[in-house]
Amino acid sequence: MTKGRESNIKDITYKVDLDVSEGLKALKALNRESRKAISSLKELEEQHRKMSDLQGDVK
């Protein structure tokens, strides 16, 4: 604000109505699929650990 000038700023209110249901559905689906992928990776990691343990026992 410039010195010596008064501000004439008024309050402005906006109402926004958005439909985000499709976006929320997509995010939920993405979250569901990412949880499945994480579960699969954990299972793969466990199997890899078991195989590594078995190979260590053979040597």
Rank of each mutant, 00 (worst) to 15 (best):
M1P: 14
M1A: 08
T2P: 13
K3P: 11
G4K: 07
G4Y: 02
G4N: 11
G4M: 11
R5V: 11
E6T: 08
E6L: 09
S7F: 11
N8Q: 14
N8A: 05
N8I: 07
I9Q: 10
K10Y: 06
K10G: 09
K10V: 08
D11M: 05
I12M: 07
T13G: 03
T13W: 03
K15W: 02
V16H: 02
D17Y: 02
L18N: 08
L18Y: 11
L18P: 06
D19C: 01
V20F: 07
E22S: 08
G23T: 05
G23P: 02
L24C: 06
L24W: 03
L24N: 08
K25R: 01
K25M: 02
K25F: 02
K25N: 01
A26Y: 00
A26V: 04
K28F: 01
N31V: 02
R32L: 00
R32N: 02
E33Q: 09
R35H: 11
R35W: 05
K36F: 11
K36A: 01
A37D: 05
I38C: 00
I38H: 12
I38N: 04
S39C: 08
S39Q: 14
S39E: 12
L41H: 08
L41N: 15
K42Q: 15
E46D: 10
Q47P: 04
H48Y: 11
H48Q: 09
R49T: 13
R49F: 14
K50I: 15
M51T: 08
M51F: 15
D53P: 02
D53E: 15
D53M: 10
L54D: 14
Q55I: 14
K59T: 14
